[in-house]
């Protein structure tokens, strides 16, 4: 899978990265316009003019971008590039969400995922520096990789063919407020109240865990 990798070091590849960033920047207004297409009102309006199904087109475009982004993410040799492509993918995913009338989730996706989490990633990539050091690898050897790929292909084939056949044929009609902050809040603070609270424990664990892991031993501290 490393066939697509480029040997040139990061510093000389700036132009590519900036163009990627520009693409991401372009995506943002596109997303904004899709909101207009994808809202139920727009869908209702679209009924009068069935020639153009805005949500479906949004889905096609962003779906394609998602897959492209994901492919590029997992094939880049340089983690920085991969991270940027991941950001790209996450943006595109947000677009798909919009086509599903999940406006709040789309916003969260951009804010939290593409924003916060990816910043974390980029931070670590930069901190660790030399990419050669980051080799780890779960699977070793060509054979096990081939076997794993075969297994994944099998799973994928089964899964996708199943999903094609078994997916609910007809989506429910949804009301205006579906997917909005309001409706989300209704769920989160009623039925999901306890998980919503409990997830704070999870985040606390993450914080404490990060602190514990990155502490140095007392001796080491003395030396430093």
């Amino acid at each position: 899978m490393d066939l697509l990798s480029q040997k040139t070091p990061l510093s000389q590849r700036r132009p590519f990265i900036s163009s990627l960033m520009a693409t991401i920047a372009l995506l943002v207004p596109w997303l904004a316009t899709s909101v207009a297409w994808a809202t139920p009102q727009a869908a209702a309006a679209a009924k009068t003019a069935p020639a153009f199904n805005g949500a479906l087109w949004t889905f096609y475009i962003f779906g394609a971008l998602t897959i492209a982004g994901a492919l590029l993410t997992i094939t880049r040799r340089n983690p920085v590039t991969a991270a940027l492509w991941l950001v790209f993918t996450l943006f595109a995913t947000a677009g798909v969400y919009l086509s599903l009338h999940a406006t709040f989730m789309a916003a969260i996706q951009v804010l939290v995922y593409a924003g916060a989490i990816m910043v974390l990633f980029m931070f670590v990539v930069m901190m660790v520096g030399n990419t050669e050091r980051q080799e780890f690898g779960i699977m070793r050897g060509l054979f096990s990789k081939v076997v794993a790929l075969g297994a994944i292909a099998l799973l994928g084939w089964r899964l996708i063919s199943l999903l094609m056949r078994q997916a609910p044929a007809k989506a429910a009609m949804v009301s205006d407020g579906y997917g909005s902050v309001h409706s989300m809040g209704g769920v989160l603070f009623r039925e999901y109240l306890f998980p919503f609270e409990a997830i704070s424990v999870l985040l606390l664990v993450a914080i404490v865990g990060a602190v514990v892991i990155s502490r140095r031993s007392t001796e080491e501290k003395e030396e430093v």
Binding site: M1, T73, I74, R76, R77, P79, A82, A83, F121, V124, V125, V128, T131, Q134, E135, F136, G137, I138, M139, K145, A148, L149, I152
Partner: peptide, 8 residues
């Protein structure tokens, strides 16, 4: 499965 770079 395929990538060896931990961050990726």
């Amino acid at each position: 499965v395929l990538r060896r770079n931990v961050i990726i």
